[in-house]
Simulated assay, not measured.
Amino acid sequence: MNTASAARVPFEPWNDPKAKPYIRIVNVTKTFGDFVAVDNMNLDIYQREFFSLLGPSGCGKTTLLRMLAGFERPTSGRIELDGVDMSTVPPYERPVNMMFQSYALFPHMTVEENIAFGLRQDGVPKEERNRRVEEMLTLVQLTKFGKRKPHQLSGGQRQRVALARSLVKKPKMLLLDEPLGALDKKLREQTQFELMNIQEQVGITFVIVTHDQEEAMTVSSRIAVMNHGRIAQVATPTEIYEYPNSRYVAEFIGDVNVFEGRLSDVAPDHVVITSAEAGTQVYVDRGTSAALGATVWVAVRPEKLDVSLTAPEQPDFNCVKGTVWDIGYLGNLTIYHVRLADGKKVTAAVANRTRLRDRPITWNDEVYLSWAADSAVVLVS
């Protein structure tokens, strides 16, 4: 069957009440002296997920990954893999492999020998070992490079060798610690899709640690956004980006404009926020848990904003006026930084569908920024 043309089946076990989590992190805390690296964390990950732990430096994501690998033990709580408590199981007895950012390839061994190293350590017979190494070389598209040494490979090729070595023992879970951090931007983007395709083919649960938001958004079935040892939100990339549950998540993932305001109208299917900061009223076609009169924040992504030299038909709602004080040309996008009357800065991203010379907006122009009722998100914290 041609998998490229086959229809993809939605993969959402987290929405199935009958689905059993493959990895369960239950009330896990990890402390180093007085410092709490992971704080009473609970998290379920399902079989065949490509799951990302995303957050800034010091948020606890690497500590959690090391506990999954067995390099660190929880101070309290337990970690289960396929129904077995792994909290006290040493790393070498876990059906888990880890791929490091440095790749850690043996420089004196060939690509084939590097991939076969773990199998040789486990006493796998030579015929079986060779067969599995060949399978991995085919999987990562390096069949012609088996006799080369690591220094004879590009960065992307070394990354694929490290991945093949991690997968050849057929672990139940593969942990990836910033695996693409050493690659340049274009190669990193290409390799992200290669990783996704390989993960789908082998069907192994991948858990990746990254601080790169675009990387997490690209490869993940779900993302856990972490902050100070806790999980701020767990959701699909689409839900994380379109419906963040807090200002922290909204501001950490991508760019966003946030306006403070007060709820002046609340209904099941819409709310109205009066925002002195924005100088307008904001109509959002979704309800909220906050009460009438409560202080809330409205988040609008830059690409949701329309930029115009003329006022929209209904300028009293979802529209702010300001002056263009900076412009960034990114090729596919133009970024407009607009200063409102009270000094607040708002960012708009506009797709460049026409040539630069055909676009009328320039520095110091007075412009109107408007957005649709379904483009904003109301945040209560």
Rank of each mutant, 00 (worst) to 15 (best):
residue 155 G to H: 02
residue 39 D to S: 12
residue 67 M to R: 12
residue 268 P to V: 13
residue 151 H to T: 11
residue 124 V to S: 15
residue 366 E to H: 01
residue 227 N to K: 13
residue 369 L to D: 13
residue 75 T to N: 00
residue 245 N to C: 08
residue 248 Y to D: 14
residue 314 Q to Y: 14
residue 304 K to W: 05
residue 259 F to W: 02
residue 86 M to D: 07
residue 65 L to W: 00
residue 159 Q to A: 07
residue 34 D to C: 06
residue 291 A to T: 15
residue 152 Q to I: 08
residue 239 E to D: 15
residue 223 I to E: 06
residue 263 L to R: 07
residue 192 Q to V: 08
residue 234 V to A: 00
residue 125 P to F: 13
residue 226 M to D: 04
residue 240 I to E: 01
residue 313 E to L: 11
residue 228 H to A: 11
residue 96 V to L: 07
residue 78 R to M: 08
residue 344 K to G: 04
residue 204 I to L: 08
residue 4 A to T: 06
residue 108 H to S: 09
residue 167 L to N: 15
residue 91 P to I: 12
residue 125 P to A: 03
residue 19 A to H: 03
residue 195 L to F: 11
residue 163 L to D: 15
residue 280 T to W: 10
residue 57 S to A: 10
residue 293 G to W: 10
residue 47 Q to R: 03
residue 93 E to M: 06
residue 56 P to H: 07
residue 177 D to S: 08
residue 111 V to C: 11
residue 57 S to V: 12
residue 158 R to G: 07
residue 60 G to N: 14
residue 30 K to A: 00
residue 98 M to Y: 06
residue 47 Q to P: 00
residue 203 G to H: 13
residue 204 I to V: 15
residue 150 P to E: 04
residue 81 L to N: 11
residue 345 K to L: 10
residue 225 V to G: 00
residue 94 R to A: 07
residue 216 A to R: 01
residue 155 G to V: 02
residue 186 K to W: 05
residue 46 Y to V: 03
residue 128 E to N: 15
residue 86 M to E: 10
residue 120 R to W: 10
residue 11 F to K: 04
residue 255 D to H: 15
residue 249 V to H: 00
residue 222 R to F: 11
residue 182 A to S: 09
residue 158 R to F: 02
residue 1 M to K: 03
residue 326 D to M: 10
residue 21 P to Y: 09
residue 218 T to G: 08
residue 294 A to R: 09
residue 51 F to A: 04
residue 153 L to D: 12
residue 335 I to Q: 02
residue 96 V to G: 03
residue 90 P to F: 10
residue 39 D to M: 06
residue 102 S to Q: 05
residue 227 N to W: 04
residue 109 M to Q: 13
residue 173 M to I: 14
residue 244 P to Q: 05
residue 230 R to W: 01
residue 275 S to V: 05
residue 142 L to C: 07
residue 156 G to F: 14
residue 123 G to I: 10
residue 66 R to G: 14
residue 41 M to A: 09
residue 246 S to Y: 04
residue 331 G to C: 03
residue 171 P to F: 12
residue 58 G to R: 03
residue 152 Q to C: 08
residue 45 I to R: 04
residue 365 D to A: 04
residue 208 I to L: 14
residue 201 Q to Y: 05
residue 289 S to P: 02
residue 59 C to M: 04
residue 105 L to H: 00
residue 255 D to G: 04
